[in-house]
Computed example of a mutant assay.
Amino acid sequence: MIEFSKYQGLGNDFILIDNRHQNTPVITPEQAVKMCDRHLGIGADGVIFALPGDEETDYTMRIFNADGSEPEMCGNGIRCLAKFIADLEQKHNVGHSYQIRTLGGIITPQLEAQGQVKVDMGVPTYQAQAIPTTLGTPEAEVINQPLVVADQTWSVTCVNMGNPHCVTFVEDVEKIPLAILGPQFEHHPAFPERINTEFIQVIRPDYLKMRVWERGAGMTLACGTGACAAVVAGVLTGMSESVCTVELPGGPLAIAWSSETGHIYMTGPAELVFKGNNLWK
């Protein structure tokens, strides 16, 4: 029997497991797929494990997507993990932060008032080899590069936020057939490790509207790293300001890219939905 907690951040939902007693996840990717099934399991976009930290960190984050794949990190997920840890420790002090190791580097979430969590997402990179992508030369920045998908040429900007993103700006995100285009972007030969894809509509330079297709999870209500990537791409292409509200189907995120430190900060909610026991292992 495995105890779990279900959390959500703007509708991006996760199964959280207390894995602090060992350094490897207590379930397999195949078991995670069953748990994430919305009809036959608990239902979630992924399973997140709170593992022990090391000499540099308080905790380690691992995550299995709904399809069993393992991403480097997850923006909405790390906010949910911070709230989960705060609940485990019974420490909810505003301003308290954690150093969390992810496969994408060390990330620092901080508890804020009114159920918000502010996350220092680190410094974005946008060279082709960092994505990775075959667009351009390995050292070149992938900004406004042409990409043919579904017999249409899209102007894309690629950003690594600890995980890979392909951002394209469109006139109306609601007219994008996301269920059709999303898989074609995700599995495009230009992205050997697959890709998260964001379609962005500029409402104002400080307000972006976004729809996302997540690698390994599909169409989700929110993506924190994707919102960060959208603002980075907006600044690089002159489409947006460095401090933006990003409106996702599940709600808004506050994103700020510091010109002084190069770090990008994401602030948004995370909340407990319910707790339970998974009787089958």
Rank of each mutant, 00 (worst) to 15 (best):
P109D: 14
P205H: 07
P124L: 09
T137C: 07
K91A: 12
F185C: 12
F185Q: 07
A82T: 01
G68W: 04
V170K: 12
I131A: 15
D172I: 04
I176K: 02
T168N: 01
V173E: 04
A179M: 12
C80G: 09
E89H: 02
T134R: 10
T125M: 07
F191C: 03
I143F: 04
F191L: 07
V156P: 01
K83W: 01
K83S: 06
E141W: 08
D172R: 15
V159Q: 06
A86H: 12
N160S: 13
H187E: 07
V159H: 00
F191G: 00
Q116N: 08
F199L: 11
G105I: 11
Q145L: 14
I100Q: 03
T133S: 11
T125F: 05
Q201D: 02
G182I: 10
M161H: 01
C166S: 05
Q99G: 07
L181R: 04
E139S: 12
E72K: 13
I131W: 15
Q129P: 07
G122I: 06
I180E: 05
L103E: 02
K175L: 05
I203G: 06
R194H: 10
E171A: 15
Q129R: 15
R204E: 15
T137W: 04
F169E: 12
I78R: 12
I143H: 02
A150Y: 12
R101T: 13
D151Q: 15
K118P: 00
G105V: 07
Y98V: 00
K91I: 14
L178W: 05
N144C: 14
Y98W: 12
Y98P: 03
G162N: 05
F199S: 07
N163G: 09
E139I: 04
L111N: 10
N144H: 09
P124H: 08
N196L: 04
L135S: 02
Y126A: 01
L111E: 10
P164Q: 00
Q201K: 07
H187R: 14
N160Y: 04
T133G: 09
Q201M: 00
H96A: 05
Q152S: 14
Q99R: 15
V159S: 06
Q114E: 15
V142K: 11
P109S: 10
Q152L: 02
V149I: 14
E72L: 14
N163A: 08
L181D: 12
N144T: 10
P189N: 00
Q110L: 10
L88Y: 05
E139W: 07
F169K: 03
V170A: 00
T157K: 03
I85L: 13
K118R: 08
P164G: 07
